[in-house]
Design a binder for these strands. Structure first.
Lengths: 345, 345
DNA sequence: TTGCAGCGGGAATGCGCTTTCCCACATACG
DNA sequence: CGTATGTGGGAAAGCGCATTCCCGCTGCAA
């Protein structure tokens, strides 16, 4: 990647480097219009493209914003990515992408790479965890992030603060009221569902999952219902799918209809998919609700009850967009938790 | 973003800049082990993070790979993005992301921005078009890309060559056998479907759409079937949805069952969604097939017949991964084109 | 002992740009 | 007419690093 340089432009236009820079790359000092015109012509003729690396080096600001997700092809993350991307565009920045599968070690490396590129800010989506096996990774990640912040970096975190961060300086946490919303969901479900509840949760220690479980249980308690049983599995579609057989058995054994709360939509989808071949139909034999309201749900049948989260806005907020309203979710009851007519009768 | 610099490390370790550089950032010359150790210690103590911008400037190679998609939250693009990301990771590069909604003007700007960042290569996904209204945009985009290539850049294009490129130098087109695969699909469908066919296509001039239409018609002709009618609409879910009412009318008016070919999956999904409230059921009242086999289909009911495309591999190939096999698709017939038992009887 | 290759480390240059500082000139005022 | 005040352009000093070139040293053969 070589290209014509600013000094070539300056020479062709017969002006100094400084003047050319002032004309082409914005400065508080505006050279005279005739000179400016000459410079622009020269730049055009040479096909000059400013070297952002050199600019970044000279200005010590890169115009880069780093985004860390578990998996860019996951609808939850890609929605957030879209928001980040839009915010970046508005701020005239570019997005640097890193997918990590959620491994703290990889996230640490991504942060280091972003720091090396002198990204102005880093957005880290995907839930943090306090599980023992993640401990070492979390410590290293936190150390890397802290260092980045100490050097003037800016970190936007979705959901929960980074585990083990030694400071809040430079961190900007986009709060997601997971617990409250889960409680709301439980309250609304309890209003129409008479029977038992069951939670399909992610691994213990995963903040997002834990918050939603806690909120749901609180909502049930407030409605005078007994606490729901909990099945733990992976925090993704595969996890939901794996939980299917056990759930099917439980549903068939129970005389009353079960209401399942999967702590996120992709898990709910996985559960539903696994239940279908077992002959368990939603909402005929059991009802189910998810969380997130990912775009995929629009075409998923039965329409899935869930809690709507403004994922794009979350991305925008994490990217530091000031014009975006704070996160507020809303319960969306759909067909997957409707009581079928036959049963009502 | 300030941080400790190499010269600080060098000073602390009591060595020269050159030596520190050789130790820390890989060079053919390896300093003695005791010195190297001193340098590493110093770097560690200072929390040194090499400045990739400066490295890029000095080496004139940025380790960046630019990715242009229409919409990162579209499952088609996010699958490709995943592939690109993986390839980048293997090559020890980072992905720069740009979403453009398919506007040639925006794509041009994205290319310029990537060029400014001296990206080593650019991957441009999303189909090109020869529509009149895109002409000016295409010309400018091609000019920008050509310039980028002339300066030594490397462009990976998914599907079709860039319209108006004045050279093939630097371009690497990932060929997708859209036409052949569409013909295969038509052949397989014609084997079981007796009635009429109808194509829901994107706007005329969109390469990908046109190729698939042409292939499908050829496949029908080879099977001795009359050419299918064509409905043109947007090349996305909304387009498919919009085509719904007209399709429903047609289906209701026809005595024999219609087989619909939507030129991509999201359009097929849109069509199906729009048909449902009209009381038209797939595959009872009509059958439908899509194209791409996006991951979303896994949980879409009725299971959608489609043509599988290895989207991640396509991304990897476009990103210049040498170990990935060339693109080969395959027809996947699923429930959405099955002839229902009642009708067979 | 001298000469030479070979090795390891350092000084210095340049990558392409921004920005400070300086200077020449023009204008205004006393 | 001389000095204060701006105005606009240029020279040069970095930004942080890779790399070329150079130099002093060691070890070996002559």
């Amino acid at each position: 990647m070589a290209a014509s340089t600013l000094s070539e432009v300056a020479r062709l236009a017969g002006v100094s480097l400084a003047t050319a820079s002032r004309v082409l790359n914005g400065s508080s000092r505006k050279p005279a219009e005739d000179i400016a015109e000459r410079v622009r012509e020269a730049a055009d003729k040479l096909g000059y493209v400013p070297n952002a690396q050199a600019q970044a080096l000279a200005k010590s600001s890169s115009g880069l914003i780093g985004l860390i997700v578990h998996d860019i092809a996951d609808p939850y993350f890609s929605a957030i990515a879209r928001g980040v991307q839009e915010a970046a565009r508005q701020q005239n920045r570019m997005v640097l992408l890193a997918s990590t599968s959620g491994a703290a070690q990889d996230e640490k490396e991504a942060v280091a790479a972003f720091a090396a590129r002198r990204a102005d800010s880093i957005v880290i989506a995907g839930s943090r965890s306090v599980r023992a096996e993640d401990k070492q990774g979390n410590i290293e990640l936190a150390a890397e992030l802290d260092r980045y912040c100490r050097n003037g970096g800016h970190v936007g975190v979705v959901g929960h603060p980074v585990v083990g961060a030694s400071t809040t300086e430079g961190y900007h946490v986009v709060e997601v009221p997971n617990e409250e919303l889960a409680a709301d969901l439980a309250a609304e479900l309890a209003a129409t569902h008479e029977g038992e509840f069951l939670i399909v949760a992610g691994p213990e220690g995963l903040y997002t999952s834990d918050d939603r479980v806690r909120g749901f249980q609180r909502g049930l308690a407030d409605a005078g219902r007994p606490a729901a049983g909990i099945i733990r599995t992976g925090f993704n579609r595969a996890g939901g799918y794996d939980a299917g057989p056990a759930l099917a058995e439980r549903i068939k054994a129970s005389k009353e209809r079960l209401c399942i709360f999967a702590v996120n939509d992709v898990m709910a989808i996985g559960v539903t998919a696994a239940l279908r071949p077992e002959g368990v139909w939603i909402p005929r034999d059991a009802t189910i609700a998810g969380f997130d309201d990912i775009e995929t749900l629009r075409d998923f049948r039965p329409a899935l009850s869930t809690v709507h989260l403004p994922l794009e806005d979350i991305g925008r907020l994490a990217a530091g967009d000031p014009d975006t309203a704070p996160v507020s979710g809303a319960v969306k009851l759909r067909r997957s938790t409707e009581t079928p007519v036959e049963v009502q009768a």
